[in-house]
Design a protein around this nucleic acid. Structure first.
Lengths: 166, 166
DNA sequence: CTTGACCCTGGAATTAGTTCCACCCTTTAC
DNA sequence: GTAAAGGGTGGAACTAATTCCAGGGTCAAG
């Protein structure tokens, strides 16, 4: 039943993971994906675990981690060392980022759903002068607690500017 | 009670929205933020609605929209026209993206929480040889239905490559 | 031995969003 | 009037992730 090979070539891994071999190499260069053993011909031989690693990477990226950030976290993990506070803090910050983004996303999902429903309704009714509200609702979203913060580096914009103009 | 001004300067709006005036100008250039009226001195005068618009933009970006994509959607909305199928399709695609990302994110949130808890436990116990599992758990996450797809443009990687090598 | 399918490498290029730069203008306070 | 603070402009630069490129192997099939 186990149709899983224990080694993948770069092409195979790329295929399985849904990305290009170029990207795999990139991950390697960035230090988030370990350099795999090579065969005699210098071809990469990825262990099965690499697939999971790649999936982890993609999830982490999707969630706002930077390859460099990830590298710092994974380096700790891979060497089994105790995470220096820096890394722990990073992980914690990411977690709270994620929570914020989760809220935002489900918010936007709701809005987007409403918009689509709206559009479809309007398109069916076809009342000529109707002038659909379309994304109007999107604009309306409760703009309560959220507001600014970006994914990783927050609002350095004018801070930097202020520094140099000082 | 309404402490809200009805017009903002670019600096004010930037401040409120938590981004730089440069970014505001960028949004304008990209066509997601309407060119505001100008005062006699050529200063921008943003209507209060611009703040909501900017917030919408940020949410949309956070969720995977591209400024160009957003522009195409918003252009429809702003002109009150019926959304051409292209735009509707885009919105729908984004919705499904969002749903996928939501799943991924809450998945990763869970994992991240576990990792943090793990770390803290280990750090407290301080069993020397323990060699923490750290992110180990992250690797373990159910890799069921999800897997590859990226935010916006999916997997063009090798597709393009294939085309040209044909 | 040639062809086609893969793989390798380092560095350049691209894409998107954002920021920086240089230079000029306006308004307010001293 | 002059410095400080805030605006404006176009275009260059930067960052991150990914892709492209050019030149060079390996290997099985025909």
């Amino acid at each position: 039943m186990s149709s899983e090979k224990s080694f993948y070539s770069s092409g195979e891994l790329a295929e399985l993971a849904g990305l290009s071999t170029d990207t795999l190499r990139h991950y390697e260069r960035k230090g988030v994906l370990a350099r795999p053993l090579r065969k005699a011909n210098d071809y990469r031989q990825y262990p099965a675990s690499a697939l999971q690693r790649v999936r982890l990477i993609r999830r982490a990226i999707a969630v706002g981690f930077t390859l460099d950030e990830l590298a710092s976290v994974l380096k700790v993990r891979d060497s089994g060392g105790a995470p220096c506070m820096e890394v722990r803090a990073l992980a914690e910050a990411k977690l709270s980022d994620i929570e914020t983004r989760l809220r935002e996303m489900s918010e936007l999902r709701k809005e987007l759903r409403a918009v689509l429903k709206d559009w479809d309704t309007r398109l069916e009714q076809r009342a000529p002068g109707q002038r659909a509200h379309l994304l109007e609702s999107l604009n309306a979203g409760r703009n309560g607690g959220l507001g600014n913060r970006r994914q990783g580096s927050v609002n350095l914009a004018k801070k930097k500017r202020e520094m140099r103009s000082k």
